[in-house]
Every structure is written in structure tokens, then in C-alpha cells.
Simulated scan of single mutants.
Amino acid sequence: MQEDIEIYVLSCPTEKIITWLESTFTLIDKSSPSPLCTKATIAVDNNEIEVTILEQAAGKRFTSIWFDSDKTPWEDDIACAKQAFEALNCEVRCNFQGWEEEGNQDPDQWWRINSHEEGPFIWN
């Protein structure tokens, strides 16, 4: 189980992301600390999870969705990315292996899901 889950969605409006969260989980709270940042609290199996949605997180077109909990319903970033792609129908990217402090992974190695393909690629 990962400590947290983070995915990046391409050209996907925050409101569409919130709608996905509302239809998948119980939305407890939502706020917008800044024009590009939305924070939400969702409930999953009696656990509250903080979610941060940050627009323009990677270039102008990618929005980060960060689930700050090890209690998410997904085993890893890729499982979350697959569900997000199904729900949002926009390209989703995530770290290929999950983040590890002592890992020797390539920091540019990512996983991409879009309507044309799914698989590892180098994002730089």
C-alpha cells in the first residue's frame, strides 16, 4: 500500500474532477484556497482522505490530483490512474513505480493512459 496517490490529468477541468470524486466517494468538504488550488475531503471506508487538486501542476495543461493518505482504495498510482481515465476520459499520467526514498528508478519514467495507448514512457 502506498503512502499517498498522485496522478496528473491533461486538460481536465477541476469541476469535472470534483464530479468524479462526488460520484465515487462521499464528498465531506471542498474549498478553494487559491484560483488554481482546490482542496477536498472525501470519505472512503470510514476514513477521511484529504485531496488536493492543483491546476497547472506540470506545465499549463496538467492538473495534479493528490490523495494524501495510505487509506485510498487503490493499490498504487496506476490503479488510480486507470479509474480516473475511465471516469474522466482524459489523458492520465502517474509515476511508474510509486515514489521511494531509496529507489534507483528513473525519475522521468512515467505511466500514461489515453485513448490511443497505455504504458510506460519518459516524461521530461
Rank of each mutant, 00 (worst) to 15 (best):
D76K: 07
T24E: 09
T38M: 02
P120T: 02
S34K: 09
V44A: 05
C94L: 05
N114R: 07
S115T: 14
G59H: 03
M1K: 15
D108Q: 08
Y8V: 07
R112T: 11
A40D: 08
K39T: 15
M1W: 08
T72G: 11
W66G: 03
E50S: 15
I122G: 00
I18Y: 00
A58E: 13
T24Y: 03
V9H: 03
S34V: 01
A57D: 14
F121N: 06
Q109M: 12
E100L: 10
A58Y: 14
S32V: 00
F25A: 05
I113T: 04
A79M: 11
I113E: 07
R61S: 06
N47T: 10
T52L: 10
S11T: 06
D77W: 02
M1Y: 11
A84V: 02
P35R: 02
G103N: 08
N46H: 11
K30T: 09
E117L: 14
D68T: 02
W99V: 12
T26P: 00
Q105M: 06
D106L: 02
D29T: 10
E91M: 08
R61A: 06
T26Y: 03
D68Q: 09
L36M: 06
L36H: 02
I28M: 11
F121E: 09
E118A: 15
A87V: 01
T24Q: 09
A81R: 09
T14H: 00
S31K: 14
C80L: 11
E50V: 10
E3I: 14
E91L: 03
K60C: 05
L36W: 01
N46A: 11
I53R: 10
D106A: 01
T63N: 07
P13M: 02
N124D: 13
E6L: 12
C80F: 06
E101A: 09
K82E: 12
Q105H: 14
V9P: 06
C94N: 05
L54Y: 05
G103T: 07
D45E: 12
Q109W: 09
G103V: 02
E86V: 13
D77V: 02
F62C: 03
E102F: 04
G98K: 11
V51F: 06
A79D: 13
E22Q: 13
S32E: 15
N47L: 06
N46P: 00
S11Y: 01
E48G: 00
S32H: 10
D108H: 05
F67E: 11
G98L: 12
W111P: 04
A79S: 15
E86Q: 15
E15N: 10
K82D: 04
D29L: 12
V9D: 03
W110M: 07
W66P: 04
V92E: 02
T14M: 08
P107M: 08
P13Y: 00
W110K: 08
Q2M: 15
K30A: 05
D45R: 10
E3F: 13
L27P: 01
T14K: 13
E86R: 14
V51K: 06
I78M: 04
A57C: 07
W110Y: 07
N124K: 15
L54S: 11
D68H: 10
A84N: 03
E118M: 13
I49G: 13
Q56F: 01
D77M: 01
A58L: 15
A79Q: 14
V44K: 05
L21C: 05
C37K: 14
T72W: 05
K30D: 00
N46Q: 13
Q109H: 13
F62D: 06
N95F: 09
I53A: 08
N47H: 15
